[in-house]
Structure formats: structure tokens, C-alpha cells
Amino acid sequence: MYIENIELQHYRNYESLSLTFSPKINVFIGENAQGKTNVMEAIYALAMTKSHRTSNDKELIAWEQEHARIEGTVHRKYGSFPLQLIVTKQGKKTKVNHLLQGKLSDYIGQMNVVMFAPEDLHVVKGSPQFRRRFIDVEIGQISPTYLHELMQFNKILKQRNQFLKDAKYKKLDPILLDVYTEQYVLSAAEIIHRRFLFMTLLQTWAAHIHTSISQGKETLVIKYKTEKEITAESTVAEIAAVLTARLNEMKQREFDRGVTLIGPHRDDLQFFVNDYDVQTYGSQGQQRTTALSLKLAEIELIKQETQEAPILLLDDVLSELDDYRQSHLLNTIKGEVQTFVTTTSVEGIEHATIREAKMFHVERGTVTEDKSLKEE
């Protein structure tokens, strides 16, 4: 899978931009704050309908404009077709092959991307919210039904939280909470079950890759952290039973706090290298190797599930990796994964993959193909 071209209109600092890409490696070179990451973000947004940098869609629209438009042609094993995302101040519209999509969950998955940015190096030591988002984004790309389930879960969670919040100040019918709880448990159990299935697959790939990067010295184990009675072998019904029991135990505390305290929105991931918690005891090198292993495992997992390699977006991340990890990453993607790289300079990146890339120079929102850098 690869993206053949992209067109931007009123997007960030690009009034209008049209680019054609190599199906292999594309490198965007320029100083900071010139617009390199905006191109990367646009490719990500075309795939995922949202930015990896902000939750406020209005920030994608150029100053004093009413909308931003991203269009691109995606090549998959069954042919090429256009994708379109239009972001307005009222909402978003998506099209696949010129046909308007009724739901975002019907659109996501048409083009699969894996983003690796400096903040992803902190997936190990960052907040649990960051790791939950990582899980949800990746499952959503390979399973549109999961996205639908997740939206349903968030809707029910919001209703239940609102009831608990209101109950602190006024008398409400307790039967209504029972109704919300029953719906909540069924939805939450499905989410947790799907996450366990995904993490089992990801663990298989990540452990193998981590062992390779560490030259056989380290073993990586990923654990999905939820209620201790729930395991990867638990059925949806068993998960629901555990959640029901725990919610009954926590009922008074939830009323006191005015919020739901049990469920997938509270879960987390744990990473262990040679049985040590990497988040707490791992060196910076081990944490970075773990993050890199996760990203490369994402690529392999998406390939396994869709029978096509996803598009890899490396946003200013090569400079954050030492020579060995940099070479491992570039060797892994060589010739198979369409890759986009942003960097301030290719100096110091001694790898044939970069030398064979299609080069673009970015300055003040203007992008030009730089053939001279390739020839050198």
C-alpha cells in the first residue's frame, strides 16, 4: 500500500499544495517551523480523519478560511482510488472513490498508517492515557467494528458519569443507574476483550523485534493492565461478570467522586524487559528500544491483518535514535514500506535507503523536489 499523491487546500500554512510521492522513501528537509510536519500530519489526517498533534480540528484550517481540504490517491493491491477529507468549523466530511461516507468508522482503514514521532518515544514512560490511545488507534485501523464499539462505549460512559455527577446534588431514580451500568458493562467487556486479543498479537511481534534489536540480550513482555481477575483467556461474559462485581463494590465511592472508576478508560499497558518494569527501572536506551519495537510490531501486525504493508511516517525521529537503532529501523522498512521522513538534515544518516529517497525541500510553506540532494 502506498499514497501516490496529495493535494492540500487551506491546510495549516499551505494555501495550496500538490505533491507526487515515491512508493518507497520520501524525505522532507528543512528548518523547524517551515511546514515539514504539516505535510506529515496531512497524510496522517487523510488516513485517520484527525491530527496526531491536536484534538481541535479547527487548528487544521488556515487562518481566516472556512475549511481545509486534503485529497490523495491511495494504491492498494486491488487498485488505486481517491480519498478526501474536508474539515470545516462545523465538522468533517469524508469520501472514498468520490462517494460520501456516512460514518467515520466506514472511512478509517482505507489507508493504514503508522506514525513514529518524538513523543512516541515516551509511550513507555508517558501517561496511561497515551498508551490507551495507542491501543485504540491501532485496533481501529484494522477493525472498523472496534471503532464503532469504542464510540458506543464512550457515549454510555458519558451518560453514566453524568448520572453520578448529578446524583451528588439531587435525588435521581437508582433504577436508571442500573440501566446505565448494564449497558456499560456489556460495552466495556467487549472493548477489554478486543484489546487483549490485539495485545497478544502485538506481543508476539514486539518480543521478536526487541530481541533482534538488543542482539539477543533482552526479552520484552507486554502486559495489559486491567482488573486482576481478568486475563487474556477470559471470555466477554466472564469479563462482564468481573466488572459488574467490581462496580457494585465501588458504588459508594463512585457516588462520592461523581465518576465511573472501573473500566477500559482506566486500564494501562506495562512493559517488562528481562522481568524489570521498563517504565520505572529501564534505561533511556531500553525505553527507546521498547518504543521502536512497538512501532515496528505495528507494521508487521497490520501487514498480517490486511495482507499489505502500512505507510510509515517518521516525523523528526531519526535524530532521536542512535546509529544502531536508526540502521535497524531503516533496514526493516527498506524496499517494502512506503516511508515519509522529516529531518533538518540528512547529514549523519549513512544509509542506502535515505540516499535512494525522493527528496523535498521545505521553506516557509513552499515544498520543492530537491533532485540535487539525491544526486550528491
Results as ranks from 00 to 15, higher is better:
Q9M: 14
Y14L: 12
Y14H: 11
L19T: 12
P23K: 08
K24S: 12
I25T: 14
G30Q: 04
G30W: 04
A33S: 15
M40W: 11
A45H: 07
L46D: 02
T49L: 06
S51H: 11
S55P: 11
K58A: 14
I61G: 10
I61C: 10
V87R: 12
T88L: 05
G91Q: 08
T94D: 04
L104V: 13
Y107R: 01
G109C: 00
G109T: 03
L121Q: 03
L121M: 05
H122K: 11
V123S: 06
F130D: 13
R131T: 03
R133E: 11
F134H: 02
D136C: 04
V137R: 09
E138L: 08
E138M: 08
Q141I: 00
I142H: 00
S143K: 12
T145F: 12
L147Q: 13
I156Q: 13
L157C: 05
Q162W: 10
F163M: 06
L164G: 13
Y169W: 10
K171C: 04
L177T: 03
V179P: 10
Y180P: 05
H193N: 09
R194H: 11
L201S: 15
Q203G: 01
H208S: 15
I209Y: 06
T211V: 03
S214H: 07
K217P: 04
K217H: 10
L220M: 04
K223A: 02
T226C: 09
K228S: 15
A232C: 05
A237M: 09
I239C: 12
L247E: 11
R253V: 01
T260L: 07
L261D: 04
D267H: 06
D275Y: 12
V278R: 02
S283G: 05
Q286R: 01
Q286S: 01
L296S: 00
I302M: 09
K303F: 13
Q304L: 11
E305W: 13
T306D: 07
A309V: 04
L321P: 12
R325L: 00
S327Q: 15
G335P: 05
E336T: 14
T342V: 10
S345H: 07
I349D: 04
A352F: 09
A357G: 07
K358R: 13
M359L: 07
R364F: 11
L373Y: 09
E375T: 07
